[in-house]
Design a protein around this nucleic acid. Structure first.
Lengths: 131, 131
DNA sequence: GCCTACACTTACGACAAGTAAGTAACGAAC
DNA sequence: GTTCGTTACTTACTTGTCGTAAGTGTAGGC
């Protein structure tokens, strides 16, 4: 999903037709106040990612199957994909325990644990307005 | 790579079922601690929704084009779709000002404004860990 | 020998998102 | 009096992500 920058491509601003505003290619600030907020949304706002982080915040260290059990609607395929992403982004740490059926443990890094206040606020909001 | 030589695999008459866990149909709890958190994630975790809410939190009332300008990568099509969803969910209020080019204003409802603490915490996290 | 548990992969159809262009209403400009 | 520009959307089509189901590899237990 990494949007590749197309540098030399210059869209003609004076094309015929109605005013087009859609998806300007030039790298604009997503938001005047906090450009990183956008990045955060793209990271943990992805499908199931917020749920996974939420589960890991409440229970320190979990195995693959335990996360799958905690979020039953989430399939193995996406869980595996999301965990790889979160690991690559530095949000979770993956530890492999070599054994008979191999055991893999996932836990939040410092970066991931720092999401706790945001998750807590969202939980509070959900409890109040969706209950 | 080259461990595959059979091409199209015929459905074997005696398929053994490996332990399947994916998406159990029985109505399970999504999460033991806070089932509404999931719902919240599904609501504001949708693509661009968090960004839109974030913009509306910082500037009280905005017109369609102003939101589009604030989130330049978001297309008109999705903006329109997301605003309809948010209105239907009671997060934003839509006001039409009849004029020559009709003006539409969007503002957060009480429910929407209550997301401010969560947004603020996420912004803080983003500033600290993504900057 | 066969089954089971675990942590994934692979395949593919369905659906959501991205991109481009069009519409309606009206005022101002030419 | 036709064209241009603005605003807030639709519509049409392509691309990408997600959901569902099944397969993989290894080792312990029956």
């Amino acid at each position: 999903m990494g949007a590749n920058e197309d540098g030399p491509q210059q869209p003609d601003p004076r094309l015929r037709g109605p005013a087009k505003r859609t998806a300007v290619a030039t790298e604009e600030r997503p938001d005047s106040c906090c450009p990183y907020y956008h990045e955060a949304i793209e990271l943990i706002g992805r499908r199931w990612t917020g749920a996974i982080v939420g589960v890991l915040i409440h229970r320190n260290s979990l195995r693959f199957g335990e996360i799958a059990d905690a979020v039953p609607q989430l399939s193995d395929r996406l869980l595996s994909e999301r965990m790889k992403e979160l690991e690559a982004r530095g949000v979770v740490r993956r530890t492999v325990h070599p054994g008979r059926p191999v055991r893999v443990e996932y836990e939040l890094t410092e970066m991931g644990s720092a999401l706790a206040p945001a998750v807590r606020e969202l939980e509070r909001w959900a409890q109040r307005w969706l209950a």
